[in-house]
């Protein structure tokens, strides 16, 4: 695959980031220089950071200048800490517009791995909606276009295949969430040439482990994980609970890190996309992209611990 200037910028940014920011990484890793955890997109061999950013609810702030500025700071922190994959959808209200304004304010179009979705029952409207999203984000082209929640997936996937062949997008995929329609999802994974799938997976919602994630590995499909915090419910579950003492041994310093490292340590996972509206939370999320990942036995212990709460 030929790399564009923008891909080179992202790749160079990711790989050179640790070297260029020794102070930051010394801080992140408790004094030891750290490199971000990257994952490979099986269909291309391209490396992407294992922690991305979702925008559902958090970036839907309308035209509020104060909140747009605050979300711009969140995005800046995300990029500063080595992130690049940002996911959105036309379903998310004003999120795409806010993202576009933030990218413009940061002049960060070259830093973002732009992933959005097609969300319309009109299967002939794929290009129209993609064009609208283009304008809202202000990016030259999308890296990844996904069919949102399988809505009109047959028609949209055909068009996305054409767009990919024409170089209008780099990757295509499908999404689901909340564990819905996994049977149909698996059938599409088995029969269609997908680069990415997006699904819900977290320390409590592990249905994807049984069929979808092994299938993704077998078929060479990258996996983006949504709802890694179960929409915030995991934090409410552990709110008064301190981290277990053994978490520190596994290199985990916060509950956000605990939940995210559980997710990205799964060998099928390419990237998790937590969403947040706060800089401090973004910093915690991005810390999960550095240091050690839990082993399989540690992951089982983590899941058992959260279930017991």
């Amino acid at each position: 695959m030929r790399l564009t200037r923008r891909q080179l910028v992202i790749g160079a940014g990711i790989s050179g980031f640790a070297l260029a920011s020794p102070g930051l990484f010394a801080e992140l890793a408790g004094g030891t220089a750290a490199v971000p955890i990257l994952r490979t997109v099986p269909s291309s061999g391209e490396s992407v950071p294992a922690i991305g950013m979702g925008t559902w609810i958090t970036f839907n702030v309308g035209n509020d200048p104060y909140l747009i500025e605050s979300r711009t700071e969140v995005l800046k922190t995300f990029f500063d800490r080595g992130g690049s994959v940002v996911d959105c959808s036309p379903m998310y209200g004003s999120s795409a517009d806010v993202l576009g304004k933030a990218l413009n304010a940061l002049q960060a179009h070259d830093q973002v791995f732009a992933a959005t979705k097609i969300w319309t029952a009109d299967e002939s409207a794929t290009r129209t909606q993609a064009e609208s999203s283009h304008n809202r984000w202000g990016v030259a082209r999308f890296d990844l276009l996904q069919v949102h929640n399988l809505l009109g997936w047959r028609g949209h996937l055909e068009t996305l295949k054409e767009m990919k062949a024409d170089g209008e997008i780099r990757y295509l995929g499908i999404t689901t969430s909340h564990g819905r329609r996994h049977d149909e999802f698996a059938r599409i994974m088995e029969t269609e040439p997908l680069d990415f799938v997006q699904l819900t997976y977290n320390v409590l919602d592990r249905e994807a482990e049984s069929v979808l994630m092994p299938l993704a590995r077998e078929r060479g499909i990258a996996v983006i994980v949504n709802r890694p915090f179960q929409g915030g419910a995991l934090f409410r579950r552990v709110q008064s609970e301190p981290l277990p003492p053994w978490a520190a041994v596994a290199g985990i310093g916060s509950w956000a890190e605990f939940f995210l490292k559980f997710v990205i340590a799964h060998p099928a996972v390419t990237c998790a996309i937590p969403a947040t509206s706060q800089v401090a939370h973004m910093q915690e999320n991005m810390a999960a992209m550095y240091g050690e990942l839990p082993s399989e036995s540690q992951r089982q212990r983590m899941a058992a611990f959260v279930r017991s709460l």
Binding site: N60, V61, G62, L67, Y92, H178, R181, S277
Partner: peptide
């Protein structure tokens, strides 16, 4: 989407915005 799938949604799943953003509207 099937009727059964709709039953798996909660009220929170339909929310597109957070309380802070809503209060800022006023």
């Amino acid at each position: 989407m099937t009727d059964v799938a709709w039953l798996s949604y909660s009220l929170q799943d339909f929310l597109m915005f957070g309380p802070q953003v809503f209060l800022r509207l006023f």
